[in-house]
C-alpha cells in the first residue's frame, strides 16, 4: 500500500523507498546514511526521463541487494498497480562504487492545461530553488527508513524552449510553457485566409468607390 501515491511523488517515493526485512533495532543504530542524486528531464510531449543514483554505505548496499529492492519497487510500477505509467525501467548495480542507478520514463507526468504545463509535486520533495536561465529546478528530500537515513537532491530539467517557468508554492507545482502547446496552423490555410480577406476588402472598396465616383459625362 505504500506505493499508492500519485503524481510526481509516485516516482520519487518508489525510487526512494526500500523494502527490507526487519532487522534488530535500537535507537542508537539509525546512523547509516544513503545519498542520492536525481535527474528529471521533462520532454516536450510531457514524458519525463527519471534517473536516481544512490550511493550507499556498504551495509546498506548489501542489504538492498539482498532484499532485491529493484524487484520490489519496480514491480510496484506495473501498470496494473501503479498510479503512473512507466516504460524503459532499468537498474544498474555497481559493486565497486556501491551505487544503484534506477531509471525509467514516466509517461504523461506533467498535465497539459492548454496554455501551460503543470507538474504537481506531492509531499516528500522540498523545493529548493529555480534557475530560469538554466531552466532547472532543484528539490531536496531526506528521510528515515529501516535501512538508514537518506538525503538527496533532485534536479528537474525543463525543455530547452520552455518559458514562463515558475514554482507555485500554493499548488505545490511547477508551471511552465512550451511552444509545442500551440497547435500549428497550416501555412497554406493561412495563405487562403489572407487572400480571402484581401480580396474581400478590395472588392468592398471597389464597390464603395463606385458609388462615390461621379459618372463620366457622355
Amino acid at each position: 500500500m505504500k506505493h499508492m501515491v500519485t503524481g510526481m511523488m509516485a516516482a520519487a517515493t518508489v525510487l526512494g523507498s526500500v523494502v527490507l526485512l526487519a532487522t534488530g533495532p535500537a535507537y542508537a543504530q539509525e546512523m547509516t546514511m544513503g545519498e542520492y542524486e536525481g535527474r528529471w528531464e521533462l520532454q516536450a510531449n510531457g514524458d519525463v526521463k527519471v534517473t536516481r543514483k544512490f550511493t550507499l554505505p556498504m551495509i546498506m548496499y548489501n542489504q538492498w541487494k539482498l532484499t532485491n529492492v529493484h524487484m520490489a519497487e519496480f514491480r510496484s510500477l506495473a501498470g496494473s498497480r501503479s498510479t503512473i505509467e512507466v516504460t524503459d525501467k532499468k537498474y544498474e548495480w555497481d559493486d565497486v562504487n556501491r551505487t544503484l542507478t534506477l531509471s525509467m520514463t514516466v509517461l504523461g507526468l506533467p498535465r497539459n492545461m492548454g496554455d501551460h504545463w503543470e507538474a504537481k509535486m506531492v509531499g516528500g520533495l522540498s523545493f529548493s530553488n529555480l534557475d530560469e536561465n538554466k531552466k532547472t529546478a532543484f528539490f531536496h528530500s531526506s528521510g528515515q527508513s529501516p535501512a538508514g537515513k537518506f538525503e538527496g537532491r533532485d534536479v528537474v530539467v525543463f525543455p530547452g524552449d520552455a518559458t514562463k517557468i515558475e514554482w507555485n508554492a500554493g499548488a505545490n507545482a511547477l508551471m511552465y510553457r512550451t511552444p509545442s502547446l500551440d497547435a500549428p496552423t497550416g501555412l497554406w490555410t493561412l495563405l487562403w485566409w489572407t487572400l480571402a480577406g484581401l480580396c474581400a476588402l478590395a472588392g468592398i472598396a471597389m464597390w464603395g468607390m463606385s458609388f462615390v465616383r461621379k459618372p463620366v459625362a457622355t
Partner: peptide, 17 residues
Amino acid sequence: FMRRLGSILAAASVIFV
C-alpha cells in the same frame, strides 16, 4: 468597371474562404 472588378474580387474571396 469598378463594380465588375469589385464583384470579381468578392467572388475570389469566397473561393479563397
